[in-house]
């Protein structure tokens, strides 16, 4: 198994380090052809406007979208979540339109209001809480059919899943808790088994 981390801009190395701790092979993805060598893709935190523009310029954008439509496992954190969305409230970013979620950018305010807190998991894991690092974080303001809520902070949805697509508005890669990396690896593992069977 090899996991790619979109390396156009942002905190991609942190994800690679987390996966390294779990003994997983990684590569940073900057070109179309890199997608051929991976079993799952992480779109990291960074500036969503920048990542979207760079991906559109070199055709990665459409290639990732095509893969996502075929149920290829993709996990977006923060800016990555914004990219996975169907709709951005202020239309300031061109998203991939893969997940049936509507997103508000910088929903908790500017950097001064960035925060760390414990978020509540919806009962899918042995642990009840997860350390949430929210940096100019987006919020999921509505979800469509087939989207499963994984975690909330207060009333806000901050993590969800739709098929093999996973989205978190916080940064698990900036903590030492590898739960979400493990969840994503399980998704990838299952998708590899399914595609072999198919």
């Amino acid at each position: 198994m090899k996991i790619g981390v979109l390396g156009l801009q942002g905190a991609y190395r942190e994800h690679m380090q987390c996966l390294g701790k779990l003994g997983i092979d990684t590569m940073d993805v900057r070109y179309n052809q890199d997608l051929k060598h991976i079993n799952g893709l992480i779109i990291p935190g960074g500036e969503s406007t920048v990542i979207s523009k760079l991906a559109q310029k070199n055709l990665l954008f459409d290639a990732i979208r095509q893969k996502g439509l075929l149920n290829f496992p993709i996990w977006g954190t923060c800016a990555g979540l914004i990219l996975l969305a169907s709709e951005i409230e202020d239309n300031s970013v061109e998203p991939l339109k893969l997940m049936k979620i509507k997103v508000r950018r910088n929903a908790f305010g500017r950097q001064k209001h960035s925060f760390v807190t414990k978020i509540k998991l919806s009962g899918f894991a042995a642990q009840e809480e997860f350390p949430g690092v929210f940096i100019r974080a987006p919020q999921i303001i509505s979800i469509g059919d087939g989207v499963e809520v994984l975690a909330r902070y207060q009333k806000n949805i901050v993590a969800c899943k739709q098929g093999n697509l996973l989205a978190t508005s916080f940064h698990p890669e900036l903590t030492s808790d590898l739960l979400f990396h493990q969840i994503f690896l399980n998704i990838v593992q299952r998708s590899m088994v399914t595609s072999l069977a198919g």
């Binding site: 390396g7 156009l8 942002g10 905190a11 960074g46 800016a79 950097q111 960035s114 940096i135």
Partner: peptide, 8 residues
């Protein structure tokens, strides 16, 4: 963490 997001 904010600075990390600016990398690249």
């Amino acid at each position: 963490g904010m600075a990390e997001m600016l990398k690249g």
